[in-house]
Amino acid sequence: MVAKRIIPCLDVFEGRVVKGVRFVDLKDAGDPAECAAAYSRQGADEIVFLDITATHEKRKTIVEVVKKTAERVFVPLTVGGGISSVEDIKNILRAGADKVSLNSAAVRNPDLIRQGADMFGKQCIVLAADVKRMMNGRYNIYIQGGRVDTGLDAIDWIIRAERLGAGEILLTSMDADGTKKGYDLEITKAVVESVNIPVIASGGCGTLSHFADAFEIAGVDAALAASLFHFGELTIGEVKKFLIDRGIEIRK
C-alpha cells in the first residue's frame, strides 16, 4: 500500500526561506532550493513551499525558485501561497512543481478548483484549509494568512472542495500552529472521515509521538512540519525511524 508521507514545509518570502511562528515572526534562513535538496537527502517524501511574498510584482520570484529547485530535487514539490488564477497554476506547474495548493483564492472563487482540476488533473490541486476553533466547538475557514474569518464551516467547505475536484487537503490548525503541542487531532480526524482524498496534517507538531498520533489517531496520509525540521530539532530520518519502529508504513 501507499506509504505515509513526511513533508517539510518551507515558507518563502521574496525568494528566500523564512519561518513564521504563528504567521508573524520572520527569520531569514537561506536558499529554498538548497534547503529542499537537504530535506530530500534526509528522506523527505515531498516538499512544500509556501510563498508568503506580499506584493504581486514580486510573486514571480517563486517561479524562479521552483525552477532552481526542480533542477536538483527529485521528489514531488507542492507550491502554495498567492495562487489565484489558472495562469498562476500553469506557471508554477511548468516551472517544475507537481502540485499547487489553493487557499484564499479558492474561497473567493471556488470554480478555480474545478478549472485547475479539469486542466491539469485533480492530483495536482491541493486545497489548503486554515481552520480555527470557534466558541461553539465548530471550526471556521480562515484566509489571507489566517487574518480573515470567512464564516465558512471547515467541514462543509472541505467537502465542497473535494466535489469541485481537489485531489488532496492540506489542513492547518491555526490554534495549534507554532505551539509544538501536537496536531489538532479532533478536526484532523473529522476531516479524514469526511473526505475520500488524502489529508495532510499541519500545525503544532513538536515531538516524535505527535507524528505517530497524526497517523494512528487522526488517520492522515501525510504529516507536515516546518520549524521542527527547519531548526534541526528533529531530522526527517529520525522521524521516519521512529514511525517504522512503531509499525507504520514509511518509505525508508
Partner: peptide, 12 residues
C-alpha cells in the same frame, strides 16, 4: 476498502 483514486504516493 477505503482505496483512494488516483493511486498517489510512494509504493513498494
Amino acid at each position: 476498502d477505503n482505496l483512494k483514486i488516483p493511486h498517489m504516493g510512494w509504493n513498494k
